[in-house]
């Protein structure tokens, strides 16, 4: 499937539910076993309100949204963000919802520039997330 992009286009909102089980699975898959991502005790001891998602997990959700918009995998040419606010994931079955929005900023020979907005509970959790997709 090929998707056509044009500057100014708002891309469909993507929402992802994140639970503690997802963080455990991500820790194993990525090799990042920092206990702030699975232990309330350790998270609390370093001043966090609770267990937080790996920043790279949240970034992976942004990449997932990009794949969805691009209509396939392997189209990302550049992807970057700052980790500005932690995503706190409670120890319950509901977890939290991360929302990814995107706007096409420009379409050039270099590719499709996308400005992202990644939020949780109405607050931005990634700073200046942006990507370039292959045109």
């Amino acid at each position: 499937m090929t998707t056509t992009f044009e500057a100014g286009q708002a891309l469909p909102t993507q929402t992802f539910r994140v639970t503690r089980a997802d963080l455990v699975r991500y820790a194993g898959a990525s090799g990042d076993f920092n206990p702030i991502h699975w232990s309330d005790r350790v998270a609390g001891s370093v001043g966090l309100p609770g267990v937080i998602a790996h920043g790279m997990f949240t970034m992976a959700l942004a990449a997932r949204a990009l794949d969805s918009w691009a209509g396939g995998t392997g189209r990302v040419r550049e992807l970057g963000c700052k980790f500005t606010k932690p995503v706190v994931v409670p120890d319950d079955d509901e977890g939290v919802t991360v929302t990814v929005d995107g706007t096409v900023k420009a379409v050039t020979d270099e590719g499709v520039q996308v400005a992202l907005e990644v939020t949780c509970g109405g607050e931005k959790v990634l700073g200046q997330p942006k990507a370039v997709l292959r045109g």
Partner: peptide
């Protein structure tokens, strides 16, 4: 496949998810 499942991403046997290289960069 393990990484794709952990992030809910699609893996069709070709491109790995975009953030997969962190596994190598992390080391």
């Amino acid at each position: 496949l393990e990484f794709a499942r952990a992030t809910g991403s699609v893996y069709d046997g070709e491109a790995a998810p975009a953030t997969f290289p962190i596994v190598v960069a992390f080391s």
